[in-house]
Design a binder for these strands. Structure first.
Lengths: 341, 341
DNA sequence: TATGAAAATGTAAACGGTTTCATTTTTTGA
DNA sequence: TCAAAAAATGAAACCGTTTACATTTTCATA
């Protein structure tokens, strides 16, 4: 096993200094054509690959973008990864995806890990752990774009889904159907997406002078299982809902399963709506009425903005926020005619 | 903006050499307790973070595992990522995920990119581009574990799903139901998963002396759309199938959609089975009969083996292959009673 | 041909750590 | 108390690049 071949070895063989080799290889600074050829030939022959560690130790550049997500499950996150990867790929960069496992200290570790020379910029999605995230972000040496975080954090750049608007309009849609006892299965405590969706729900009720029954509000964990239990709980009490708004589609799927077991018909007995418009929601019978979240738009805007921060086209210290609008997807689960069949 | 604080600064403040600081911080070599305390306090106060680039420039260690997937869509890949991430996280390492976009030169670039100092080892899934992949892998300076690649490559370490066995048994299952004209929607050309699944299918037919009608073999792209078109094509010809084996569940979903539009009942008119057992397959009505692919087992075995290669517990030059068995998931789509309802 | 400008190349100092080996300090045991 | 052993520390080289600056070579022009 011969030692890793480095720039010095090439310089030695070509009979020049490492500086010249570096210049020849990177096309930075003048090198006589003949010399360049010789160097390139040797590099080729030796199958030389510059050590990225050493390189970025001096250049502070990595051509790598970091993406930190709270977890690596669900197609929602996969879609985010996919969109961003696509864009990163087209600008000849690399993507580094990591999961914070929804823990603040892990966010911190990852931000440090990436920020200290491994990536040129970070896209961070941390809906649960945002109390001190802004501080971490500001401390980071690399530009950071936040995704779906509480946007009351000053001095950060963030993009988010307009959860409030989406929840508000889908709730209004249910109200227009005439439902009186609309339940909500909300998302986990401390999750700002969940909070905003609940706010949209309750303000829509308020606008239409409908009461907010505390017994019709259940908390879930954004997964199928919790939706299943939540619906069972809702149906086992005196005040039964005539419509259920699940704060995301996964929980709505749990509702469908529970409803089938309880022989509750959707939408005849109880209407159901969700949020996210995940792929699986179109497979449900009837198709789930839900809020479309333009994930690709979110990812695209975030990565494009980040790249401009990295190139200093935009001042990274300048704060910015943009909320991306959602759209309503009408299936048969709300009582409308199911056009997907 | 003050300059990044480094080990020298700490040494200066503590009145010791950088060597001592390094020893104190990494618990390598002896340091007087009093000195250690002083150094730790200063490091704490200055919020010192060692530069990982500089560190790994000398140690040649990054505590990072690379994962290269052909693409970043579908829950199948998400599940792979998830399983591996979980294990990586528990060993206090980082995960770096990248997509090769199913292009061989990108695989090469990524392998170089990661292999030259960014990661300690790589898990590579490249079902389409394996002609020269083995060469690349052998050239890599870091240990590499292959996932679902053609296992006829010598001198590599690989884990794969036993596609043949899965396809064989689900085909036999259909045969036992008495279907005579079993069609297959196979996967894309050159994809070795696809090839093995087809081989399992045809050998099962052969074993039971059933003919292999070329008009009942259609090629898809492992996505929903191609399944949709494939089924339409199958039903528009003279020889119509009484059962369809879609080489993966996504294509089976396409079949369901097409069947609904054509008013073809599953399984009364045509039985349908898939492969992968993705989440969505249980949402179909009737539940899809499919082959369960233990992705978590696959990911787990791959990452554990890789870690042992990294720690030199296993000689990385030693080749190894293991095929992981699949299992049958019985839904209602094959003609069995649907127990999921 | 001499001269100055431009082009090509080299030297050496970073970058921020780790580690070998030598040196100093402390501890131990007779 | 003193030598020897053990423990703690420091000096400096090293990892593989890039790059500012100095130096040399080439080339065009007078």
């Amino acid at each position: 096993m011969h030692t890793t071949i480095n720039i010095r070895e090439i310089a030695r063989r070509a009979g020049v200094s490492t500086a010249t080799v570096s210049r020849a290889l990177n096309n930075t600074g003048p090198v006589r054509e003949k010399t360049r050829q010789r160097i390139l030939a040797i590099a080729q022959e030796l199958d030389y690959r510059p050590n990225p560690m050493a390189r970025s130790l001096t250049t502070k550049q990595t051509n790598t973008i970091g993406l930190i997500l709270p977890e690596l499950v669900d197609e929602f996150f996969m879609d985010i990864i996919h969109t961003i990867d696509e864009e990163v790929y087209h600008t000849n960069r690399f993507l580094m995806v990591a999961s914070s496992h929804s823990q603040r200290n892990v966010v911190e570790t990852l931000l440090d890990f990436m920020g200290s020379g491994r990536v040129d910029g970070v896209i961070l999605m941390a809906p649960q752990v945002n109390i001190e995230v802004a501080k971490l972000v500001r401390r980071s040496k690399r530009p950071v774009v936040l995704l779906n975080s509480k946007n009351n954090q000053q001095q950060t750049v963030s993009f988010s889904i307009n959860n409030f608007q989406g929840a508000f309009s889908i709730t209004e849609h249910l109200i227009k159907h005439g439902y009186q006892r609309i339940a909500m299965i909300q998302g986990p405590d401390g999750n700002c997406d969940a909070e905003e969706r609940f706010r949209g729900f309750s303000e829509a009720l308020a606008k239409h002078k409908l009461p907010l029954h505390s017994s019709l509000i259940v908390t879930g964990q954004f997964n199928e299982e919790s939706g299943y239990y939540a619906f069972n709980r809702l149906m086992s009490q005196n005040l039964q809902p005539d419509a259920v708004f699940a704060a995301n589609d996964m929980m709505a799927i749990g509702v469908y399963k529970a409803a089938q077991q309880l022989s509750v018909r959707i939408p005849q007995d109880v209407a159901v709506v969700g949020f996210d418009n995940i792929y699986a929601s179109q497979l449900l019978n009837p198709r789930l009425t839900t809020v479309h979240v333009p994930i690709d738009e979110l990812g695209m805007k975030a990565i494009r903005y980040l790249l401009r921060m990295i190139s200093r086209e935009i001042d990274p210290a300048q704060s910015y926020h943009e909320a991306i609008s959602t759209g309503l997807i009408i299936g048969g689960s709300c009582g409308c005619q199911d056009l997907s069949r």
